[in-house]
Each structure stands twice: as C-alpha cells, then as structure tokens.
Amino acid sequence: MPFSPPAVVCDMCILHPFEQLGSPMPIPSRPTVDFHRRLRKDEVFDRLFQAILDGTLQPGERIRDVELQEWLGVSRTPIRLAIDRLVEMNLIESRPNRFTRVSPAAPGRIPELLQVMCAFWELATRLTIETLDETSALECRELLAEAARACREHDGSRAEEAVEHMRRAMFFFSEHSDNELLRVLVVRIGAALRFQMSLQGDSMDKLLLESVFERLDEAVEARDSAAAGEAIRHVQSTGRRLCGVTA
C-alpha cells in the first residue's frame, strides 16, 4: 500500500480537528485527565476518515494496521477503534481472516442509504424548523445557500466539496434536534452516503440538487416544516437521478 505521509492530511490535523475535518462528533464533557487518550483515538479516526473521503486512501485499497501505526505514530488500539467505527460507517470493510480495505464504490447502495437519510431528514426538519430562533435560522439559511452555490458552481472535478457543503446543511437540522439517537445515526449513515456520493462525481444532477436546497431555504425562511417535508419527498422520488445512479 503506497503510504507516503500525506502532507495535506497532516496539515489539517491540529488539536481540535472536529470542525475542520467536518465530522460532527458530539463533543461530550469529559474530565481533563482523559483528554489525551480520547484525543488520540479521535485524531486517528479523523485522519483516516478524511483520508478516505478525500481520496488519499482509494476505494478498495488495502489497509494494514502496522502501516497505519507507522504513518500515524500510534499504537494498535486507537487504530483498531478507529477502523471499527469506520467499518460501522461502511467506509471500511473487513473480511474475517482476510483483508481489511477501504470500501469500494457501490452505487447500488446509494438509493438504500438515501431512503434512510430522507426519513432522518424529514424527522430532523420536522423537529427543528418551527422552533429555530433568529440566529440559528440565519445560520441554517447560510449553510443552505452555500450548498446551493456549491451545486451550481461545481465543475465536476471532485464531488467531495459539493457533498461536504450539502452535508453541513443537512446535518444542521439533526444537530439542533433533541434526539440524540437521531444525531448519532445521521452521522453514521450520512458518512456512508457522503462517501458513495463523492465517488459518483460528475454524474450527480447538480441543478436538481441546487433546487432542493433552495426549497429548504424557503421552508426555513417561512418556518414551514411541511414545506421542508415536501422538499425531502422530492429528494426521495428523484433520488436516483439526483445522485447519478444509473445502475
């Protein structure tokens, strides 16, 4: 496995990587004594996560514990824990007694993932839209506007960025809901969807996606959760075209 230390990933890894690397892990309150131990395994997770999403680690590429340990300078345990979380997110697959590898592209999974995510988004928007305060609503609308812009201006080189903007916009709702289980599941299954969609690249229907974000923006402006629900139904019904799944 060609493992030259990826400078890009290293640059992005500063002590509080959560925001920057865009993986919205809930930051629990923990006593400082445990700070470093917690951070190491989360840092390992963040770096692997990012490496998979930005293509540093390619779909299907083999993953070997020992090489990761050398690359990241950590022991086996944080590697194992990070890999396991990524397996759960379907970003890594692990065949017992055989290999561990980055998940390959599996466009067939996109409609399955999308159906589940749409159910989550419907719940999340229903729980939050009507009770958003001014500041949060503004923040939400900015994220939605950025997502719409990213779709419009996406030049097809790498879907990663556009998908990242979309992720932030959609995650806003679940993050602002009271439902902890919803938050956890949106992160987990959202990661799998994001990964597969970023591999679809240019085949995503950007105009359609842009219109979804515009509709959500209107729904937030009007504090209308029913309208948000309709926008999400539209995502569901145009799902295949939206994500460029031809299979």
Binding site: Q115, C118, A119, E180, L181, L185
Partner: peptide, 20 residues
C-alpha cells in the same frame, strides 16, 4: 425520555417507508 426518543426515530423510519 430515552424511550420516547427511540420511539420517535422508530416511528419516523416506518412512516417514511410506509408512504412509499
């Protein structure tokens, strides 16, 4: 409250697919 949270998610998933 954790039960209600789980139920809320459970209901949302089943409702979404029922509609289809």
């Amino acid at each position: 409250s954790s039960l209600l949270e789980t139920l809320q998610l459970y209901a949302a998933l089943h409702a979404w697919v029922a509609e289809a």
